[in-house]
Design a protein around this nucleic acid. Structure first.
Lengths: 166, 166
DNA sequence: TATTGTTATACTCTATAACTATA
DNA sequence: TATAGTTATAGAGTATAACAATA
């Protein structure tokens, strides 16, 4: 809920600005690296990484859209691009014919492998270099809590899709 | 898979993922609010807010581009939109005829005033509600340090990112 | 009827390069 | 020559709504 009179104290303002600025700069650098190293947009990278992390190497479209904060049509668009490049495959799900099962291919894994080192290098350079292990730990803890809170808060405006438990 | 590469420990990975996810979700909600409340993109809001914060209510284009992490042409585009709506004015700088001085108008301040409450409400709802004052303080401190570090490294002008010293 | 996903479409945003003008 | 800014352009990405197919 919102406070009675909306205002932020300087500490909150500072945290907000820092968060926005850091994430913008980081995102920008990372996107550049991904584009150069593997001709991937950040969303495409996220999709591949998520599939690569999955034990089965596959997910349903809806699960992917949920994880990446996307409209389903946007996800379809990105999936088409990845499929055209042979980095993923899409097949109807056996259990539920409505669903599409998305799987990462060997070529997809290769691209991930090619892209990871530079990706990590950017993160180390920009994000972790100026932080102590304790800083990193706290950051993950605090932001993790925020994320859980955000995920549990239903979006205020039209979002007719429900999230399913994995 | 290659394993001789620098990798991230689970803590770092968690912090990174949380940062990306939180900033994405926050950005998404904030953009929606700004669009609904004042028909502003986030960049336009940033520009107006920056001008509104300035004592003189004006800045040079270059300073604005610097602050918002933008290409100059992108800034020109956004400034045109804001000027068409009468929210800012652009005039040649007196001292240096090459420069353009951008000023916020009364209408621009009105839009900011109209948009702020909802903006802050979203921040409170999504970001601050799940955090203690100490968390907020720590977040601002740590991310502030990261930002300073990022800012002190060469901007994303041209040079492709390399791991090794040049 | 509700859900999953695709398509059609229209639009916003962003970056690069060429350009003008001032310093 | 270098800097400040604009323009022209072109492409990528996104969301909305209509649609088809399955549950």
């Amino acid at each position: 809920m919102a406070k009675a009179h909306p205002s932020l104290d300087p500490t909150e303002l500072g945290a907000y600005f820092a968060l926005i600025e850091v994430s913008s700069l980081l995102r920008h650098s990372v996107e550049q690296q991904l584009r150069e190293a593997g001709d991937l947009s950040y969303v495409q990278f996220q999709l591949l990484a998520r599939l690569g992390d999955s034990p089965a190497g596959s997910h349903r479209m809806t699960d992917l859209a949920d994880g990446v904060v996307y409209s389903r049509s946007g996800l379809t668009y990105q999936a088409q691009l990845l499929e055209q490049r042979g980095l993923i495959t899409r097949t109807p799900s056996p259990n539920d014919e409505r669903s599409t099962s998305v799987s990462i291919t060997e070529a997809g894994r290769d691209v991930l492998t090619r892209v990871f080192p530079g990706h990590i290098a950017v993160l180390n350079e920009l994000l972790f270099e100026s932080l102590s292990p304790a800083d990193v730990s706290m950051l993950g803890d605090v932001l993790g809590r925020v994320r859980d809170h955000m995920r549990s808060t239903p979006p205020r405006s039209a979002a007719p899709r429900r999230r399913k438990t994995e």
